[in-house]
Design a protein around this nucleic acid. Structure first.
Length: 646
RNA sequence: GCCGUUGUAGCUCAGUGGUAGAGCACUUCCUUGGUAAGGAAGAGGUCGUGAGUUCAAUUCUCAUCAACGGCUCCA
């Protein structure tokens, strides 16, 4: 007999070799129907795998992330079985579960054959058939020698590649129905648990994620234990689509694009222009207060500058090809830093000038690969909330912290809570290749940056091998409505470019010293930031950012003059107000204004005109009552001035 | 750049081997209406672009451009 400890602390005595499923059954039949897998002493186990020693047991159901992961991983196997039946001879790579977006994929080599979306429906049908058979997932251990022999005979180079990293005792096979796969498991008890299946798309994916390798076919899918959950999932995706900045950007007249202008080139429409103005106002205010100085620099420069900076030839692929002029090659800039370095270098600098903080909303051009363009989030012309801080080593920690504090200030204003701070470090093995060869400086600055983060109490993750070539950085990662991850803002250390540009200052000992540089863009770029804000607010911008802040809606033509008087008064108080003087009924005007997500509507008719008042209506909330014009105006001005979230 | 999908009116989308339709938006008229769509009429498209097949192509084939879903890459 062995002792099984359950999460509530109770201990069950069972025969050696009893499975978690048996234990679930002994508790209740209902529970047994829901058990997908279990953790035994913290290790995820198949529900029907025998337990041979004393253990703490947690039964996993759909409510556990590990349960869902097991479910989707098993679904990938089910899909593989269906694919193999329709494409005999197919070779499989890996088929992991996914948390975001939810579901799973399987990478496969179809040889000369091609799979198209038409095949997905047939595959789904086959999967449903196989699921109904309630085929059991059975586990079998195998020696490495036997496994290698098995896949060599099969001619499966992919699984042989996987085996290279495995040893005896780690190699298990799972079989369900007619499909057997090398797999560490675990799996759900049988395929019958999978009740709702949807294969979502088909894509190419490079083997091992390396574009030099062969491209495999990847099929994405998602499954659920009931149709109800599938329906909920699909409804959620529909909701997410409504937040998509590309859809909202069009509906709200924020931006447009045009074939003749070119891909990835944004045309900001008047409503977008207002948001840009407001963001720049915010940036300039806070930078002014934090001791930054504004500069303005050209969008192009000669090749030699980018040779000095080290951006060419390493960055050449991301830059537009050069223009030949007067025997020189000029590049559209992909970054602002070299221009700013030249301003630093234009005068002899003393330690008394430092820290020198140069700020510019700099326009950059990047030749992003065509497949990477994505609405406002990934474009070819961008406006960066850029600044470069030149400081001494002693000043560095304080300066870096000040930048970090600026981030947090902005996050509070915008109510940004769902993000991940990522500390990107260098990879010591790639010093001199991907990273400038300054091991001591790397170590030192990474430590400084980490300490700032710890001090500020911001949760962060560390990633090795993600640093810039010139130093470590902190990125703020966010997710778009459709679940794609982006870097919203960045704060980078640079101890390389000051060397390549020969930047120096005279220290108190009258010696030349090389400054450290901080590159920072807390508001990222206008493009990505506004794309993010559109999704973050679902188009319902707070008052201070809203392109139109107040719409005055006269009940009929008779009150248009009064409406215009109200609107003029608001405009004089710097409120963006407009009158809807169309020949429409009030219901129609309200509907249209609601859809444009204007924060306030002022309905004015006979009653309001006679009393010098307005009937206030808040977007999304409805009628909030009569107010005098002055009362509304004062409140509105305060709401804007304080940049209130609502 | 690679794999897959799509491209019809300003927007959302039907449709067809015999040179095109709906709703919304737009213009004009009627209506002057009190908190999420009043009514009528009108205007608007060489069906992404180029070539091929055909008596005939928006429809079939190929190429190309762009967008979308991924991969790689990045703010």
């Amino acid at each position: 007999m062995i002792n099984i400890t359950l999460p509530d602390g109770s201990v069950k005595q069972v025969e050696k070799g009893t499975s978690s499923m048996d234990i679930a059954k002994s508790i209740s039949e209902g529970l047994a129907r829901k058990v997908l897998a279990a953790t035994v002493n913290g290790i995820v186990f198949d529900a029907n795998r025998p337990i041979n020693e004393d253990a703490t047991l947690k039964l996993l159901t759909w409510n556990d992330t590990d349960g869902q992961m097991t479910f989707w991983h098993s679904s990938a196997h089910l899909m593989a079985e269906a694919v193999e039946s329709m494409f005999p001879g197919v070779k499989f790579w890996v088929g992991p579960p996914l948390d975001n977006p939810k579901g799973f994929y399987y990478d496969m080599d179809l040889g000369d054959r091609k799979m198209t979306e038409d095949d997905l429906a047939a595959l789904e049908k086959k999967m449903n058939e196989l699921a109904k058979q309630q085929n059991v997932f059975s586990r079998k251990e195998m020696s490495k020698a036997d496994a290698v022999k098995y896949f060599t005979e099969k001619g499966d180079e992919y699984k042989l590649d996987l085996l290279q990293n495995l040893n005896d005792g780690e190699i298990t096979f799972y079989t369900q129905g007619n499909f057997t796969d090398l797999c560490r498991g675990p799996h759900i008890p049988n395929t019958g648990f999978i009740k709702a299946i949807k294969l979502t798309n088909i894509a190419g994916a490079y083997w091992k994620g390396d574009e030099k390798n062969k491209q495999l076919t990847r099929v994405y899918g998602v499954t659920f234990p009931s149709q109800k959950e599938m329906d909920e999932h699909l409804a959620m995706l529909e909701e997410a689509k409504k937040r998509d900045h590309r859809k909202l950007g069009k509906e709200l007249g924020i931006y447009t694009m045009d074939d003749q202008v070119g891909p990835g080139l944004i045309l900001w429409m008047p409503n977008g222009g207002v948001i840009i103005e407001e963001l720049e106002k915010l940036a300039k205010e806070s930078e002014q207060a934090a001791g930054y100085k504004r500069v303005v620099t050209p969008h192009i420069a000669k090749e030699s500058m980018y040779l000095t900076s080290g951006h060419l030839p390493y960055y050449a692929d991301s830059m537009f090809p050069p223009m030949e002029m007067d025997g020189d090659r000029y590049y559209l800039r992909a970054m602002n830093c070299p221009h700013h370095h030249k301003i630093f270098d234009a005068e002899l600098r003393s330690y008394k000038d430092l820290p020198l903080r140069l700020a510019e909303y700099g326009t950059c051009y990047r030749y992003e690969q065509s497949g990477e363009l994505f609405g406002l989030m990934r474009v070819r012309c961008l406006h960066m909330n850029d600044a470069h801080i030149y400081c001494s080593k002693e000043q560095f920690a304080q300066e870096f912290k000040a930048v970090n504090d600026l981030y947090l200030k902005y996050f509070k204003i915008f109510g940004i809570e769902k993000y991940v701070m990522r500390l990107s470090l260098h990879d010591p093995e790639k010093l001199g290749q991907k990273y400038v060869n300054e091991p001591e400086l790397w170590k030192e600055t990474e430590e400084l940056v980490r300490n700032v983060l710890i001090e500020t109490g911001v949760p962060f993750v560390e990633v090795k091998g993600e640093g810039a070539f010139y130093g470590p950085k902190i990125d703020v990662q966010i997710w778009s409505a459709i679940g794609r991850e982006f870097t919203l803002a960045t704060n980078q250390v640079d101890f390389a470019q000051s060397r390549s540009f020969n930047l120096t200052f005279t220290n108190a000992q009258n010696e030349k010293e090389i400054p450290l540089i901080i590159h920072r863009a807390p508001l990222g770029t206008h493009e990505r930031f506004i794309g993010f804000l559109l999704e973050h607010y679902a188009g319902k911008f707070p008052m201070w950012l809203a392109p139109v802040q107040v719409k005055v809606l006269p009940i009929s033509d008779k009150f248009v003059d009064y409406a215009k008087a109200v609107s003029d008064k608001l405009k004089n108080a710097d409120i963006r107000a407009e009158v809807d003087d169309r020949n429409e009924k009030i219901g129609k005007k309200i509907r249209d204004t609601e859809m444009m997500k204007v924060p306030y509507m002022l309905v004015v008719g006979e009653k309001e005109m006679n009393e010098n008042k307005v009937a206030v209506r808040r977007q999304g909330k409805g009628d909030i009552g009569l107010k005098s014009i002055d009362e509304f105006m004062n409140e509105a001005v305060a709401e804007i001035k304080e940049r209130r979230a609502e």
